[in-house]
Amino acid sequence: MLDRIYPYVVRIAALLFALMFLTPIFWMLSLSLTPEGGSLFAGGFNVSLDNYKTVLSRAPIFGWMGNSLVVSVVTTALVLLLASMAAYSFSRIRFPGSKVLFILFLSAMMIPGEATLIPLYLLMRDVDLLGTRVSLILPAIAGPMGIFILKQFFDGLPKDLEEAARIDGAGFFKIWYRIFLPLSRPALAALGIFTFIGSWNDYVWPLISISDKAYMTITLGLPMFQSSYNQEYALPMTANALAAIPVLIVFLIFQKQIIKGIAFTGGKEM
């Protein structure tokens, strides 16, 4: 008896959980589409985009998202480039001291970014980079996780292909570029997704570095805009929706790759 109904119980419970998880997002959209104090269900589905117009006229939401996009894209591209070069070298070339260097990078994975906030602030100030978008990109590239993940992947690639290329006279650099990069597209995609989400959502370092409104990322600008509203929820929620909707659309289109990428990278994070 219990065995018979068990699958149905699990399905119903899972569905209820899923609806609970979606509720805050629906609630956000509902508040953003109705005037202050209203909600979709109370207002008889009287939907309007007025809140969106108001928020966009009062805050440079798109400018902030542009900053986030620039910072995240450049960070991700540089991480992929530098990490895949270094990982290839560690995996296939080996030079005197390469093992020691790799272990040094590996142990740096244990260092939390929060430990370098103070010195980064002082150093960036000394070189006049504090408050710039560049200051958000540079420290993010120094993280060694990408090297570790890609080296593991490269180590697993068969050696036959590169041997054939080497007999044809290809150098190491060419083999990296022509053979390794195309072959490791799934790993690069996974690492790229992981890096991009991390950079887009970074909060504490931008909070410390950036003070000029024009250079803020969306993670930083959003709370600043919202802090001027008290006991008023439609406009802050609309700002949330504006920040969330593009991200959610990208997520829904690429959900399979994104979830796979996070599981792959997260699972290798040691």
């Binding site: 998880f21 805050p24 969330a244």
Partner: peptide, 24 residues
């Protein structure tokens, strides 16, 4: 797929968005 999406979706939002949603 629907369940996976539902449980994973909040993870892609930034801490600012989720914090403000929860405050409200």
């Amino acid at each position: 797929a629907f369940l996976r999406i539902s449980f994973f979706m909040p993870y892609v939002l930034s801490v600012s968005v989720i914090s403000s949603i929860w405050v409200i």
